[in-house]
Each structure stands twice: as structure tokens, then as C-alpha cells.
Design a protein around this nucleic acid. Structure first.
Length: 671
DNA sequence: CCGCGGAGTGTTTTT
DNA sequence: CACTCCGCGG
């Protein structure tokens, strides 16, 4: 390592960068230079003559992987060749190569959550699950149950007992459903998100394949290890089992994905799994001012589970005390935030150096309106994805058929869009479709045959046949996509008579995006696993370039900004009212607040609004219980000169009253 | 058998 | 308030 690099690392970081032979566990507190460690380590390996393609960097988002690889590539272009991405995208890649092993063609398609729910619903209905009583777990619940059992690696029985008491009477039926759903996906040649991990894990349990893959990936690194689940850990362990060249980085205090089966036990268990591993702690914080860290430390102190405190500011100035401000309602809050962001901008701070954080996307609606009104460009990270909107899914369903004509769900969606075709006709057609191996034979023998037979939907079915056969032959993904969008146009107008032109823009965007891809397959994979963020608004009439980021705390993981505004620091939002009934869930919300605080480099604002609205009913919010604690308050400046009209939230009728909590207490009282 | 309209229900975080 | 489910009319 050259001297210049060495000087940019402290001793612990240096050790993490250069320990390349054995297993390494890096405990990296917030802002402790973890990204730098990975960046430098990649460079160190590549400069030491290691083949970049034999380095595997598994991160939480592909954005994070890209970021680290491109940093490393800046000083050494060979680093571009490093293999990096999420567990899911890595699994996708491997499974396409090895698809023969599990009897799939490499053209399989991927279900998103809504697809999975739909498929589960279809299976459940076929099994007669809803035949007798209607009030039974719904599709979303069923999917969550199946997913949790897999991701936590526990039997269904335990999931029902622990998380869904009351549903345990359905254990046998849900077990049958799980089997049926698995078979359904095999027949459709589709994998859901969980399958990507599951199939890869099973593949790796085979000695030969494990040996091949771990020969390909000689150096394994896993970022955000506290947010991996049992399946992901198993995959990483399998890959590294032979050579033991694995480095994992994590911080238990930042574990916020247990709803997805993540377990910080992976960190605790690592030293047992790899005896003799080196444990390195990065304790110096290079990101935030001491004043901000004080708040973070206070929050950490209040958690029932004690994490090792590793927040020591390396910065010399202690910085401005973070503010705690109450507003009357969400509109006043939004107005103030927008004004404040603009004021900082006018003083020379770029919009992209400021960020608005929140627990859930829906609370940003007033702010989005306000930013729009002031012509401040912004991009929203998290919340409803572009890809999940009905019209985009409609178009994508057609594209899926080009790739995988066995995807029954895609057929269903496509057929139901044809005017005159309803559930019954669609089912009949599906039955016939299943007997044909290729898209051409389906078009010829099913679609066109039915179109010729006449009936109300004949013409539209013929149109569909034409689209599918011509679209299939279109050369580029862009052309294919455009063909679908054109075909879909009249349907769009009928289906969304109010706002079809708005949605049309989205579809044009999909076509544009499609042009950048080499194949429909690549496009579909990216749409499912790295969906483009919902369109950054078009603001050509402004002078601003890089937009202000509005992000969920979850999506902000690993990122930092000079100014951070945490909005909606209110009970019921953070912590979310869904979690307030169990200690585990509450603690995760607590860590979420910690993550939000530690994103800030220079200034932090914790904002709350007094009046809320919950499904039209006016509620009175109380300050987040995690902030409303003496030691946290002591670190905050509560006398803001802007003096908004909001009163202290612990006054007023009905403050601290949580409708949901009340109802759950009411229900509990019957037990 | 399709599709429309009314009633009712439930509202997080992500690959 | 948006989405889903159910029942009725064409």
C-alpha cells in the first residue's frame, strides 16, 4: 500500500483493509469510515494482483455497491471488474447460469411482492381455502407468513405461534398452501424474492457447485451484515467455507430490517462460525459533529439492549446543538422545512447536501406539495415504486410474456385487460395456453383461434395476437416496449379516464429506460430488483441541478448529508403504530431513530407536528417517545427562534392518545 | 359472463 | 381515501 493511502486510514481501518487472508468481522459504528475501508480494500487487493472478478462485494442496495466500486475504480480502473450487488441480484446472476440444475430455463421471470401475493391467492382459492369462511388470513398476510418462516429459518408452526396467534388453527392448510405455491411457481417458471435466496442456498449445498463458485469468488465481502437474514448468511458462509477469505461489516445498533427476517445474531454468531476470526472495531466517527453524536449516544443509551457505544467524534468543532421544533400541523412543518432548505440553499449549500428523512413515505405529501409550489426540485427515495403502479405493471406483464410464456400470472393480467375478457374467459384461455410450449404456438393455436371464433372480444384478442407476434420479433427492447405501449394506449384511456395522460408519461419513461438495455430480460430483472426511483420532477425552468433528497430512513442507510431534517418525529409515525404492541418491534423503531440521527454531518433538525390526521379523523400527536426523554431533550435546542405556533405536544386534550393502541388494548382485554 | 357501482376495510419499512 | 370484494343489471 502506498503512503498516501496509508495516511488516510487510522490503525483499525488499516488493519481491516490489509487483513486479507482469514475471516474478519468489522464492527463499524455509524460514520466510522466503513465505505472507505471497503473502497481501499478493493484497491489493495486489485493492486496486489488479485483478479477483480474474483472479488465479490455483497451490499444492501446496488446503489451502495456501485458507489464503492466506482470510488475504487477512480484510482484504479481495473476495480470496475469487481462483482458487486445485492444478495438478490447476485443470486439472480448465478441462478441464470445454473438454471439447468434445477430444471428451469434461464429465461425465468421474477415475481415482485404483489405478484407473489396474487399467485398465493390463486393457489389458496384452488385449494378451497376461502370456500367455507370468508374471514381468513388474506393474501398479503399469507405471503408474510410464508416469507417469514423462510427468512427466519423457523418452522411455520413457530411463526404462527409467535407472530400470528389466532391463525394457528390454519397451520395444516397453510403448510399445504406453501407446497402448492412452490409447485405453481415451478410450473410458471417464476421465482419470488425469497426463492432467489432459497434456490441459491440449496445449490450451494451441493459440494461441486460450492467448490466451483467459491473458486470464482476468492474474496467475499459483505456490507451491512446486521441486516442479513439466515439465508443470506448461509449463502455467504457457503461461498467462503473453503477459503475462509470473508470479511463482514456491520453495526448491531443500526439493524432495521428484522421485518424481513434480518437478525443481528449473524454478527454475534460470526466468530463462532469462523473460529479464530479477527475482530476489528471502528470507533471513531468522521461524519458528525459532537453535538449530533451526543443526541445519538443519548438515544443509544435509552435502548433496553445495550450496544457497544462507538461514537467518538473525530471532528474538532462541537457544532450547533440539534434543534427540536414542534409545529401546529404537517402543513406548517412542511412550509418551514421548505423555507429552511431554501434559506440554506441561498447561503450556498447545495440542495443535494440536504436531506429530509421520515419513517414512512405517506407523511411527505404536504411537503411534496410545498416543494412543488416553490419549484424546489426533489427526488423521493422509498415509498411506492414506479414499477408498482398499475399501468406500469400492465405494460410489464406483456413484456414478461415475450420472455417467459409460461408465466401464468402475466397471462392473466394481459388477458383481463382485453375488453370483453373477464375472469371466466381468461381461465379458459389459460387452460389452453398451458398446453403450448412457445409463444408462437400459443398465439396461433389459442389467441388467434379464439379471435376467429368470434364473440364480443374477437377483435381485441386479434389485436393482442398481433402485438405479441410482432412485438416478439421487434429487434430492440425499446421497440418491443414501444409496441406494447402503443397497443396499451386505448386500454389506458379507458381504464384511467381521469389521469391517463399523467400515466402515459410514466409509460414513455419505461420505453426510454428500455432503450438503455441490451435485452428485455435485463430490463425485467432491473425493474424487479433495482427499480428506478419514481421520476425526479421535471424542472427545466429552474436553475437547480441536483435535487433535494426525500428519503425513508430505511433507504438512507449508509448515506450522509450536511443537513438532515427528520420530519414526523411523532408517536404513531416513529415509532410506527404497528409496532407499539411488541417490545422487539419497538426496539427496531428506536434503532431507526438512531440511524436517522447519525446521517447528519453538520446540522440536525428533529421536527414534530401536533395535529395529525388518521384516515380523516383528527388526532393529537405526542412527541416521539424516544425523543421525549430527559437525556435526549438535554442534547437538543428547544427554543427555536422561528417560533412556530405549535404548542408543546404534551398539552392539549387527547394528546398522547393513540387510537390504534387503544383498539389493540381493547382487543387484548378479551384474552 | 362481463363490468359497474356501492359498501366496507385498513393504511410501514424493501429485495 | 384508495383498494378490494360483493351483488346486481345488461
Amino acid at each position: 500500500m502506498n503512503r498516501e493511502m496509508r495516511e488516510q486510514l487510522n490503525d483499525a481501518q488499516y488493519e481491516a483493509v490489509t487483513s486479507i487472508e482469514g475471516p474478519v468481522l468489522v464492527i463499524a459504528g455509524a460514520g466510522s469510515g466503513k465505505t472507505r475501508v471497503i473502497d481501499f480494500r478493493v484497491r489493495y487487493l486489485v493492486e496486489g494482483g488479485i483478479n477483480p472478478a474474483s472479488i465479490l462485494l455483497l451490499t444492501f442496495t446496488r446503489r451502495a455497491a456501485r458507489e464503492m466500486i466506482s470510488r475504487a475504480a477512480k484510482s484504479d480502473p481495473r476495480c470496475r471488474g469487481v462483482e458487486g450487488g445485492t444478495f438478490h441480484s447476485f443470486a439472480n446472476k448465478v441462478l441464470r447460469t445454473y438454471s439447468d440444475c434445477f430444471g428451469f430455463p434461464n429465461s425465468f421471470t421474477i415475481y415482485d411482492e404483489a405478484d407473489a401475493e396474487e399467485a398465493i391467492q390463486r393457489c389458496a382459492v384452488r385449494l378451497g381455502f376461502y370456500a367455507h369462511e370468508k374471514r381468513r388470513p388474506r393474501k398479503d398476510m399469507l405471503r408474510k407468513i410464508l416469507s417469514m418462516a423462510l427468512n427466519k429459518g423457523i418452522p411455520l408452526e413457530d411463526v404462527l405461534e409467535r407472530y400470528y396467534p389466532g391463525f394457528d388453527q390454519y397451520l395444516d392448510e397453510i403448510q399445504t398452501l406453501r407446497q402448492k405455491y412452490m409447485e405453481y411457481k415451478i410450473a410458471s417458471q417464476c421465482l419470488d424474492y425469497d426463492d432467489l435466496l432459497l434456490y441459491l442456498k440449496i445449490l450451494l449445498e451441493n459440494g461441486d457447485i460450492r467448490a466451483q463458485l467459491s473458486r470464482s469468488y476468492q474474496y467475499v465481502m459483505v456490507d451491512e451484515f446486521q441486516d442479513t437474514n439466515i439465508m443470506q448468511a448461509a449463502i455467504a458462509y457457503h461461498l467462503a467455507e473453503g477459503h475462509r477469505r470473508i470479511l463482514v461489516v456491520g453495526d448491531g445498533a443500526q439493524s432495521v430490517y428484522s421485518f424481513r427476517g434480518a437478525s443481528h445474531m449473524n454478527i454475534m454468531g460470526f466468530p463462532e462460525r469462523f473460529p479464530g476470526c479477527r475482530i476489528i472495531k471502528l470507533e471513531e466517527n468522521y461524519r458528525s459533529t459532537q453535538a449530533i453524536l451526543d443526541v445519538g449516544n443519548a438515544v443509544l443509551d435509552n435502548m433496553p439492549n445495550k450496544y457497544e457505544k462507538c461514537l467518538r467524534a473525530a471532528k474538532k468543532e462541537s457544532g450547533e446543538k440539534p434543534w427540536l421544533i414542534y409545529f401546529k400541523d404537517a402543513y406548517e412543518e412542511a412550509e418551514w422545512v421548505a423555507g429552511q432548505v431554501k434559506a440554506f440553499y441561498d447561503e450556498g449549500m447545495e440542495l443535494s447536501h440536504q436531506c429530509i428523512l421520515f419513517r414512512s413515505a405517506y407523511i411527505t405529501i404536504p411537503l411534496q406539495t410545498e416543494l412543488g409550489r416553490r419549484n424546489i426540485p426533489f427526488a423521493v427515495y422509498g415509498g411506492l415504486k414506479f414499477y408498482e403502479t398499475a399501468h406500469v405493471k400492465d405494460v410489464v406483464a406483456h413484456l414478461k410474456l415475450f420472455e417467459n410464456p409460461k408465466d401464468e400470472l402475466a397471462w392473466m393480467r394481459v388477458l383481463l385487460l382485453v375488453p370483453g375478457v373477464g375472469p371466466k374467459t381468461a381461465e379458459t384461455l389459460l387452460g389452453e395456453i398451458a398446453g403450448h410450449p412457445t409463444l408462437d404456438s400459443i398465439i396461433g393455436n389459442v389467441i388467434e383461434r379464439h379471435a376467429k371464433a368470434g364473440g364480443g372480444c374477437a377483435k381485441r384478442l386479434a389485436d393482442l395476437g398481433k402485438l405479441l407476434s410482432l412485438g416478439q420479433r421487434a429487434t430492440s427492447p425499446g421497440e418491443k416496449c414501444q409496441a406494447v405501449v402503443d397497443y396499451y394506449h386505448p386500454i389506458l384511456r379507458e381504464k384511467f379516464d381521469l389521469d391517463w395522460h399523467l400515466r402515459k408519461n410514466d409509460l414513455e419513461a419505461v420505453s426510454q429506460i428500455a432503450e438503455r438495455y441490451a435485452s428485455i430480460r435485463d430490463l425485467l430483472v432491473d425493474l424487479a430488483m433495482e427499480p428506478p426511483e419514481r421520476g425526479v420532477k421535471d424542472f427545466h425552468d429552474t436553475i437547480w441541478e441536483r435535487p433535494l433528497i426525500l428519503s425513508t430512513i430505511h433507504s438512507a442507510k449508509g448515506l450522509e448529508w450536511r443537513n438532515v431534517f427528520l420530519i414526523g418525529a411523532v408517536d404513531g409515525v416513529l415509532p410506527s403504530s404497528y409496532t407499539t404492541h411488541d417490545a422487539e418491534g419497538l426496539e427496531e423503531e428506536h434503532r431507526l431513530l438512531y440511524v436517522a440521527i447519525t446521517r447528519a454531518r453538520e446540522r440536525l433538525y428533529i421536527l414534530a407536528h401536533h395535529e395529525g390526521r388518521n384516515s380523516g379523523i383528527r388526532t393529537f400527536n405526542r412527541l416521539s417517545r424516544f425523543v421525549d426523554v430527559a437525556n435526549v431533550r438535554a442534547c437538543l435546542d428547544q427554543n427555536h427562534p422561528f417560533s412556530p405556533s405549535g404548542q408543546a405536544p404534551d398539552e392539549g386534550p387527547g394528546s398522547g392518545f393513540d387510537k390504534k393502541e387503544f383498539l389493540s388494548r381493547l382487543l387484548d382485554s378479551f384474552k
